[in-house]
Design a protein around this nucleic acid. Structure first.
Lengths: 152, 152
DNA sequence: GTGTCTGCAAAGACTTTGCAGTTCC
DNA sequence: GGAACTGCAAAGTCTTTGCAGACAC
């Protein structure tokens, strides 16, 4: 865990933009960096409420946008149309494996796939987006559950 | 173009289920097989209306579900949360390259990436979903537009 | 003090669902 | 003739937006 460093970055960004720091901004920023990587706006709101931080849904959305703009957070559309946010952490370029059934997200690193993606993008005149490759599938538990219900 | 073969498949499926064939079902099935691969429910509705086929939005959704169940159509969640439908055509297993900006979808075939996906899925206990790999990026036009506006 | 923020509630996009009347078989 | 189908309208989900009051600076 990295502590309040990100909060400082966020504060600097906010001030540099001529915006203001508020208790809500602070709470949202802290919360997203204390959570595991991937969560959606609703989950973030729930986590804040559980901590008795009274913040409205609209404020969560507005400030997630701000965190994305300042580069601390990444917005990902993963799997079945879910919009997830993950805090950016220094580390290897990773991509995502997503369970279509339960939504579980696993990060993976594969230099081989990065190289092939570059080749495919070049061939079609695309510019690859970082972290923009995703593999959909079924996790072990959901695959088992699917087979079971097929037998029934 | 394959002609009305799919329509026959759909009719058989509908009857095998104890359901009934209707003018709306016929029109929806025909339309989706005459369109290029990827379109969403709204676009399909628009295409039908342009042909003066009076059909309601709800019916389009209900019958897309049915076409997916019968295996003639695949539902894909591509890119920025869009739900697209593509008619299934015999051919190579392909995956999708999606422009994050304009939504353009390009199909590509890459045995190398299929092999790597299998390996990654095995490593994490996942079962890969066919056509379930997508690469997000920017197409040439959108990449150029982005750079231009950055200069401005 | 002033301009930015927040909460609320409404609006918007997309999809699903309940109901009453229509149609296929 | 009866079950399944359609259209309509309402509801549901997720996200955005307009406005009035509150707050940072």
């Amino acid at each position: 865990m990295t502590g309040p460093r990100e909060l400082r970055v966020f504060e600097d960004f906010v001030h540099a933009r001529g915006l203001r720091m508020t208790a809500e901004r602070r709470a949202i920023c802290e919360e997203i960096f204390e959570q595991h990587s991937h969560l959606d706006a609703g989950a973030l709101l729930g986590a804040l409420r559980r901590r008795r931080v009274p913040v409205s849904r609209a404020t969560v959305y507005r400030n997630l946008d701000l965190l994305v703009e300042c580069g601390l957070v990444r917005r990902q559309r993963l799997g079945s149309g879910r919009t997830l946010y993950e805090h950016v952490h220094a580390g290897q370029e990773h991509d995502h494996l997503v369970c279509e059934s339960c939504g579980r997200v696993v990060e993976f690193v594969s230099p081989g796939i990065v190289a092939l993606r570059a080749e495919i993008c070049r061939a079609h005149g695309f510019e690859p987006q970082p972290h923009g490759l995703q593999i959909l599938g079924l996790c072990r538990a959901c695959a088992a559950a699917t087979k079971e219900s097929a037998h029934a």
